[in-house]
Nucleic acid binder design. Structure first.
Length: 229
DNA sequence: GCGACAG
DNA sequence: ATCTTGTCGC
């Protein structure tokens, strides 16, 4: 039995999905600093699809936050439950992610999502949604700026600039590798933006993307091939 | 109405 | 996300 239960009223249409986001957004907690970087566990989450066969595979990889060594891995396969609609990504990814999380024996610690948290049209992206449903601290690290505006950060690793939705800073463009395109970090649930960035830098000692998501990405792809392709 | 648009 | 070879560079 999974300890992370999916709501029984999972929406199947866009209208209802947006209403669900509006109903849950008030539960997002943003006044907690979150776990100190380099302590406990950090868990990467990612999902791969085979829309041709209507199959989706999710992977969660738990890392030791201090060493980045793999502590535990888990995967789950399911049917695609929602189409990709910008702003509604969570409804496509979360069902299978919850199933994979439910297979873990370890405490996930901080969950790092491939996408956004509060940097979202209704301030309730994938990372925030997953955080509210599980109660776990979460952050979002995306590869693209979505609809937000930002100034290119300085070339040196560690530089950052605000990711803006109008005048509001909803996240940060963070340079994780010298001279390489930045990643886009946002708080998800129970973690501050400053700390989300600090975690992201600790997770990127060598590559642009966090080790957690790189590991989860490789794992969900192989899980998908094993299940379908 | 048209274009943009996390993964 | 996914379709896809070679190629430039550290």
């Amino acid at each position: 039995m999974s300890s992370y239960a999916m709501p029984s009223d999972w929406p199947t249409d866009e209208r209802t999905a947006r209403a669900v986001q509006d109903g849950l957004r008030t539960r997002v907690v943003l006044d907690e600093a979150g776990p100190p970087p380099g302590t406990g566990h950090v868990t990467g989450v990612d999902v791969a699809y085979d829309d041709e066969r209507d199959v989706v595979a999710a992977a969660v990889v738990v890392l030791d936050a201090a060493t980045l060594d793999v502590v535990e891995e888990a995967t789950a396969v399911g049917k695609v439950a929602f189409p990709y609609v910008p702003g509604l990504l969570a409804f496509r990814e979360i069902p299978t992610v919850l199933a994979a999380l439910g297979e873990l024996r370890s405490d996930p610690g901080l969950v790092v999502c491939d996408g956004y948290g509060v940097a979202h049209p209704r301030r309730f992206g994938l990372a925030s949604h997953l955080g509210v449903l599980t109660g776990l601290p979460t952050i979002g690290v995306a590869k693209n700026p979505f609809t937000f505006v930002y100034e290119d950060p300085a070339a040196v690793r560690g530089s950052a600039s605000p990711l803006l939705d109008g005048a509001e800073e909803v996240g940060r463009a963070l340079r994780t590798r010298e001279g390489v395109k930045p990643v886009f970090v946002s708080a998800g649930h129970r973690v501050s933006l400053d700390r989300a960035c600090a975690h992201t830098l600790r997770l990127t000692p060598r590559y642009r993307l966090p080790e957690s998501t790189r590991r989860a990405d490789a794992l969900c792809r192989s899980a998908l091939r094993a299940a379908a392709g």
